[in-house]
Design a protein around this nucleic acid. Structure first.
Length: 759
RNA sequence: UGGCCCAUCGUCUAAUGGCAGGACAACCGGUUUUGGUCCGGUCGGUCGGGGUUCGAAUCCCUGUGGGCCAGCCA
C-alpha cells in the first residue's frame, strides 16, 4: 500500500510500541453483492493487515435477521478471494449474541442502560431534532431490576415487536443525535439464519459492532466517513465494557463513481429488473460483474492504490480504472486477430486452393514476452467492415477504393472493386495482393496503415459482446429504466483466428485494433465461442469514429467562493464579554485577539494569570491565541503539564531575543511533553539563539558552497529557493540561528555573484 | 438552524512551518506492420478575507462551499 493517513498513524503507534500485532476486520452486511465501491475498504483492511504482518477477520454483520442472505455470504467470500486477499477467521456478529446480551445486562446493572417502553413514534418525538435537544423518556428512571426483568422477557419473546427497546442511558441533549440514548436492542420475532429461533431480541449495529471489535482484539476498525458520528458511541461502549488495549475506529472516504449506481437500494432492484442479466452482468459495478467481464484483480488493486486513502469526499475517475485495466492487460494479453463485423474480400490474383501459414508473433516488440502462432492466409478473407470506406474522411489510414493497406502480419492489398447486391448494399470487395510485400514494404511506396483480417476458410465463428457504460447520465437516479442506455450492450457475430481453440478458456486476449477480450465464463462452453469485451483500446482516431465521451452535463470545477469579508468579531460578544474586550484592547491587543480572548473564558483566564507573572500583553496574547489555542483543542488547559507562569516565561524569552520564535515552539513542545520549565529545556537542549553575525556568515557560506547548482537556479530567478537555504541554515544550527539576521546575510550573498575566485 | 468532518492542477493525490511534486485526462511531437504500447514535451492548482512567522498549502480567527447525523438499517 502507498502511505496514507492510516498507515502513518499505525507507523507512529508501532514506533511508540503500542501494538504487538495489527488486527483489522472487514464487516460486510451479508445483503447484496460487493461492488467496486467496496474495493477500497477491502484493499485497505486487508492491505494494512498484510503490510504489517497482522491479520483480518472477515465478520458478517448479521445483526438484522430480516435482511441477511446466505447467498451473499458465499458470494462475498469469493469476491474477496478473487481480489487476492485472505482472512484469518470467518466470523459472524451472531457468534457473539450471548456475550453481547451479557454485556447489555451488565450495562443495565450499572445504570447505563434501561428498557424503554415508548412507542416508535414517541421515541422519535422525544429524540428532538438536530437543532433542539431531546427529552428524557419517562421510563428512563425505571429501576435496574425492572429493566432487567423486562429485558429478559423481551429475550424470551413475551412482547410484541416494538413494545420495548433497550437503550443506553447517555444524554438526551447531546448535540450528537446518536448519543441521545441510542437503542441497543430491539424485539424482532424473526428467525435468524444462523441462530434459528433462539433470539427474540437482536442488537443494533451501534452496539454489536464496537463490542465485536473489542471481543476479537481488533486494533484498527476502519470504516467509511458516514460513520464518523458513530465513533462517539463506539468509544462510549468500549470504554464502558472493556479494559485497554482497546480498538479504535478510523474513518476514510469511500469510493464514489459517476455513471454508476452503487447503493444497495438501487443495485438490488437493478439486478432483479431484467434490464441486466443479474448481479454479475458485465455492465454492473459489482466485483462479480467485473470478474465475469474479464477485468483482472490486479487492475482493481492498482486502481484503488493509485486513488489513495483520504478523508476527502471525492468522485473517482473512470478513466483511471480504464487505465489500470489496460495497463495490466497490455503486458499480459497475447495479441490475436478477430473480426467482429465481417466484410468478405476476395484476392483475385491469389490462387484458389492455396493456403499459406504465416508466422505471427503473439507480442509486439515493446512487450517483453515471447511466442508466436501460425496464421492461415487464403484467397478469401474477412476484413472489418469499419476498416473500409468508399468515401474516406481526411486522415483515413485504412482501406478504400484504389487504396493500398497492409494486412497485419501478411501482405499489402489494394481494393480494386466494390461488389453490391440489387439494393446497392455492400456485398464484398475484390482486391489484389502484392506477393513481394510479405514482411517488407516495397521501396518507394508509403503505406498508411495496417488492418486486421482472417482467412475465411479457417476462421472460427464467434459472438462478441461489446459493453458500454450502463448509464448515460453522471448521477443516475430512479426510475432506473429511463437512464439506462440501450447501447450498453452490442452483440456482434464474427470470427476469430483458429489458434484460440487451443488456449485455456481463461486467456485474456488483445484482439488487435479492437480491444481486450476473453471468453464469457458463463455462456461460452456449450454454445460456442462467446467473447466479452473487457475494454476497448485507447484511441486517438476520432474523425467519423466513435463519439468522444466528454460529458456536456458534467459540472465544472470547484466554484470560487465569493470575495469574503469577515464579520466584526466584536459584534457577537455579550455585554460582559464586551467589557473584557475593552480592557484587552486597552492593553493594545489586536482587535481579533482581544475579541477571541473575551469570548473564551478558559483562554482568557490563562492569559490573565500569565500576564500577572511577566511579559508584554501583546506578545502574550499573540502566543496564547496562535499557539496555545491549538493545544487547548486537544488537552484542556487545566490538564497541561505546565502553568501560566511557565508559559509567560517562554514568551518573555522570545521577547528578550534569547530565543527565536522557531526555537520557542520547540521548547513549547518540550513543555507539553513534560520536560520541565522553559529555562531548563533551553539549557538542556541548547536552544539559545545565535545572533553573532560572523558565526552565521560562516554557516551560510558553507550552505551555499554545498549547493552551487541551487545558488545558480536562485540567481536565475527562482527566489522561492530562499526558503530552502533558510531551512538548510536552520538545520545546520539546530534551529538556533537568528532568522532576521540570517535572512539578511543570505539575501546579500545570493544577490551578488559571490566571492571572487568562486566559480 | 445544532454538532462532527472535509477543501491543493479538469480528476485523484503528495509536500517534519523551508524548492507546490506525481499520476490520470487533455494537447503537441517522435517511434511503430495495432489510430495500441513506449518515449519526449505542453497546458494546468493551494476556496475567499484577516492574522502569527524570517518564511504558511500547512498554525490561529473568520467567511464560503460540500458531506454526514433526527431508522427499532448498516
Amino acid at each position: 500500500m502507498r502511505p496514507n493517513f492510516i498507515t502513518k498513524l499505525i507507523d507512529g503507534e508501532i514506533a511508540a510500541g503500542l501494538h504487538s500485532e495489527i488486527v483489522t476486520r472487514f464487516p460486510p452486511d451479508p445483503n447484496g453483492f460487493l461492488h467496486i465501491g467496496h474495493a477500497m475498504a477491502v484493499c485497505l483492511n486487508f492491505g494494512v493487515a498484510r503490510d504489517y504482518g497482522g491479520y483480518v477477520n472477515l465478520r458478517f454483520d448479521d445483526t438484522n435477521p430480516t435482511t441477511a442472505d446466505p447467498v451473499c455470504v458465499e458470494a462475498i467470500q469469493e469476491d474477496i478471494r478473487w481480489l487476492g486477499y485472505s482472512w484469518k477467521n470467518v466470523l459472524f456478529a451472531s457468534d457473539y449474541f450471548d456475550e453481547l446480551y451479557a454485556m447489555a445486562v451488565r450495562l443495565i446493572e450499572v445504570g447505563k442502560a434501561y428498557v424503554d417502553s415508548l412507542s416508535e413514534e414517541e421515541i422519535r418525538e422525544y429524540r428532538g431534532t438536530v437543532t433542539e435537544p431531546g427529552r428524557e423518556s419517562p421510563y428512563r428512571s425505571r429501576s435496574a431490576a425492572e429493566s432487567l426483568e423486562l429485558f429478559d422477557r423481551m429475550r424470551r419473546g413475551e412482547f410484541a415487536e416494538g413494545a420495548h427497546v433497550l437503550r443506553a442511558k447517555i444524554d438526551m441533549a447531546s448535540p450528537n443525535m446518536i448519543m441521545r440514548d441510542p437503542i441497543l436492542y430491539r424485539i424482532l420475532h424473526e428467525p435468524h439464519y444462523r441462530t434459528g429461533d433462539r433470539w427474540h431480541v437482536y442488537p443494533m449495529y451501534d452496539f454489536a459492532h464496537p463490542l465485536s471489535d473489542a471481543i476479537e482484539g481488533v486494533t484498527h476498525s476502519l470504516c467509511s466517513l458516514e460513520f464518523e458520528n458513530n465513533r462517539e458511541i463506539y468509544d462510549w461502549l468500549v470504554d464502558e465494557l472493556f479494559e485497554p488495549p482497546r480498538p479504535h475506529q478510523y474513518e476514510f472516504a469511500r469510493l464514489n463513481f459517476e455513471h454508476a449506481v452503487m447503493s444497495k437500494r438501487l443495485l438490488t432492484p437493478l439486478a432483479k429488473s431484467g434490464l441486466v442479466e443479474g448481479w454479475d452482468d458485465p455492465r454492473m459495478p459489482t466485483l462479480a460483474a467485473l470478474r465475469r467481464r474479464g477485468v483482472t484483480p490486479a487492475a482493481i488493486r492498482e486502481f484503488v492504490d493509485r486513488l489513495g486513502v483520504t478523508k476527502t469526499n471525492s468522485v473517482a475517475d473512470l478513466g483511471l480504472l480504464e487505465y489500470t485495466i489496460r495497463d495490466d492487460l497490455n503486458r499480459h494479453a497475447p495479441r490475436v486477430l478477430a473480426v467482429t463485423r465481417p466484410l468478405r474480400a476476395v484476392l483475385s490474383n491469389y490462387p484458389g486452393g492455396k493456403v499459406e501459414r504465416l508466422a505471427a508473433p503473439y507480442w509486439p516488440p515493446d512487450v517483453p514476452n515471447r511466442g508466436s502462432r501460425e496464421l492461415p492466409f487464403a484467397r478469401e478473407l474477412y476484413l472489418e467492415r469499419d476498416d473500409f470506406s468508399e468515401d474516406p474522411p481526411p486522415g483515413w489510414r485504412r482501406l478504400s477504393p484504389g487504396a493500398e493497406v497492409r494486412l497485419r502480419h501478411a501482405y499489402l492489398i489494394r481494393c480494386d472493386e466494390v461488389v453490391r447486391d440489387e439494393e446497392g448494399e455492400l456485398l464484398e470487395l475484390r482486391c489484389s495482393y502484392d506477393p513481394d510485400s510479405l514482411g517488407v514494404n516495397p521501396p518507394g511506396r508509403r503505406i498508411a496503415g495496417a488492418i486486421h483480417w482472417l482467412a475465411a476458410p479457417s476462421a472460427l465463428p464467434a459472438e462478441f459482446r461489446l459493453y458500454d457504460r450502463l448509464f448515460r447520465v453522471p448521477s443516475p437516479d430512479p426510475p432506473l429504466g429511463g437512464d439506462a442506455s440501450r447501447e450498453s450492450l452490442t452483440v456482434c457475430h464474427g470470427f476469430v483466428e483458429p489458434s484460440v481453440a487451443h488456449d485455456s478458456a481463461e486467456t485474456r486476449y488483445q484482439f488487435e485494433r479492437l480491444g481486450y477480450f476473453w471468453r464469457d465464463p458463463k455462456s461460452s462452453a456449450p454454445v460456442g465461442l462467446v467473447f466479452n469485451r473487457i475494454i476497448t483500446l485507447r484511441s486517438s482516431w476520432n474523425a467519423g469514429g466513435e463519439v468522444r465521451r466528454d460529458d456536456p452535463t458534467k459540472s465544472g470545477g470547484a466554484q470560487a467562493s465569493p470575495p469574503g469579508e469577515a464579520p466584526d468579531p466584536v459584534a457577537a460578544l455579550t455585554a460582559e464579554q464586551r467589557a473584557s474586550f475593552e480592557r484587552y484592547s486597552a492593553l493594545e491587543l489586536s482587535r481579533n485577539e482581544a475579541a477571541l480572548l473575551a469570548g473564551n473564558s478558559d483562554l482568557a483566564n490563562f492569559f490573565e494569570e500569565a500576564l500577572a507573572h511577566q511579559g508584554s500583553p501583546a506578545s502574550l496574547a499573540n502566543w496564547v491565541v496562535n499557539e496555545l489555542l491549538r493545544v487547548a483543542k486537544v488537552i484542556p488547559l487545566s490538564e497541561l503539564p505546565f502553568g501560566p507562569a511557565e508559559f509567560a516565561r517562554l514568551v518573555a524569552l522570545v521577547d528578550d531575543n534569547a530565543l527565536s520564535s522557531r526555537a520557542a515552539k520547540e521548547v513549547l513542545k518540550g513543555m507539553l511533553a513534560g520536560e520541565g520549565d522553559p529555562d531548563a529545556i533551553v539549557a538542556a537542549r541548547g536552544f539559545t539563539q545565535v545572533s553573532d553575525a560572523s558565526a552565521l556568515e560562516s554557516v551560510i557560506t558553507r550552505v551555499l558552497e554545498a549547493n552551487p547548482e541551487k545558488v545558480e537556479v536562485f540567481r536565475q530567478g527562482k527566489t522561492g529557493l530562499l526558503g530552502f537555504f533558510m531551512g538548510q541554515v536552520m538545520r545546520e544550527t539546530g534551529g538556533k540561528a537568528n532568522p532576521q539576521l540570517t535572512r539578511g546575510i543570505l539575501e546579500a550573498k545570493l544577490r551578488r555573484p559571490a566571492t571572487p575566485g568562486d566559480r
